[in-house]
């Protein structure tokens, strides 16, 4: 084409493209484990770690969904209330079905949980995209609605699961497969599927494009409404899966179930390396972020240096440090 064309050194190929923002959460996780071991050798025991990671599974599963929403340029504050609402609805359905279907009512209840999750996510998504309301405000509204519904359904008290079902359902939280608790396996499975969707499918590409620049996506023929709405539906499904794992843990839904989970979820996503303004999502970073949060809490309980009443404060410090690191590594 032109006289001064230089042969560009093109390097396609499968070169690993790691940078500090991608590695950060995993390095932090490693550092935390090392510190934990120094503070209290029991910290690294298989029992303790397995307990801690199991506890982090709910947040991890919901945060994986939040990675889609945040990647597509949205935000969902309603996840904690939604988890409580879905837990309540699920238990009520299981209890109602128990006399007729016995043990079969558990999978039926799970299916209903997922269906309710899809509907809740769809509602959030449509309010944001079709209703064109800021995600913060829209999900602030639904957060209140879901919380009010669970309070109303439980009459301000608890909705316990049927005694007969409790024992059958129990293993979903307390059981293990090859020595690994089910919640950990489920959260790994959810994260694996999510990272496939986000990195290997067209939808994932569209999601990141919409989050990075909605105008570019629109001019490229991508439906911003559809992409964002689907992200909220994925979030709803993830909340439902978390609720399914959560029911056997306490065996009841209460108005305080999932309180402030949205903060932990958003913190996990952000320390996982996903930018809050949208763009590329980091699914495995999010999982690491959720584990980090729970590890810090555990570490504070096991050590005598800092009062465990300050857990939330330390988590707050962590999110700010994570943001500063992201800023400085730019």
């Amino acid at each position: 084409m032109s006289a001064i064309t230089e042969t560009p050194t093109l390097r396609p190929g499968r070169e690993l493209n790691l940078n500090w923002a991608d590695l950060g959460p995993f390095l932090a996780l490693g550092a935390l484990l090392a510190i934990g071991f120094v503070v209290n050798p029991d910290f690294l025991s298989a029992t303790n770690l397995s307990n801690v990671i199991t506890r982090s599974a709910f947040i991890a599963i919901i945060a994986v969904g939040a990675t889609f929403v945040i990647s597509s340029g949205g935000l969902d504050l309603s996840v904690g209330s939604m988890a409580a609402f879905i837990t309540g609805v699920t238990i009520m359905f299981m209890n109602r079905l128990a006399p007729d279907f016995a043990g079969l009512s558990i999978p039926m209840g799970m299916a209903i949980a997922v269906a309710v999750g899809v509907l809740c996510g769809l509602a959030n998504g449509l309010i944001v995209t079709v209703g064109k309301i800021e995600p913060f405000i829209a999900t602030l509204g639904t957060m209140g609605i879901f919380r009010a519904l669970i309070t109303y359904m439980s009459d301000g008290g608890t909705i316990p699961i049927d005694r007969a079902l409790r024992d059958i359902y129990r293993p979903v939280y307390f059981g293990t497969f090859a020595g690994i608790p089910y919640p950990i396996l489920i959260s790994l499975l959810v994260a694996a599927i999510a990272s496939f969707i986000l990195y290997k499918t067209k939808y994932g590409r569209k999601c990141a494009a919409v989050g990075a620049n909605a105008d570019v996506a629109r001019y490229s023929g991508i439906s911003v409404v559809k992409t964002r709405t689907i992200a909220y539906v994925i979030q709803g499904v993830c909340v439902a899966i978390a609720a399914i794992c959560y029911v056997p843990r306490l065996g009841a839904a209460t108005p305080t179930t999932g309180l402030l989970w949205e903060l932990q979820v958003i913190t996990a996503v952000v320390i996982g390396g996903t930018a809050l303004r949208g763009g590329k999502g980091h699914v495995w970073g999010t999982v690491a972020g959720a584990v980090i949060l729970e590890l810090i809490a555990n570490l504070m309980v096991l050590s005598d240096y800092v009062s465990e009443y300050l857990v939330a404060g330390v988590q707050g410090v962590i999110i700010i440090i994570a943001m500063l690191i992201q800023r400085l590594s730019k």
Binding site: T201, A212, V216, A217, G279
Partner: peptide, 29 residues
């Protein structure tokens, strides 16, 4: 810059953004 290209994104994803379905007929990219 504002409506044409994703400036933070690599060249390949930018190039195929309008023709994703033609490039990846299946689910997997």
């Amino acid at each position: 810059k504002g409506k044409g290209l994703l400036l933070q994104e690599q060249l390949g994803p930018n190039l195929t953004l309008s023709s994703l379905s033609r490039f990846h007929p299946g689910v997997y990219m």
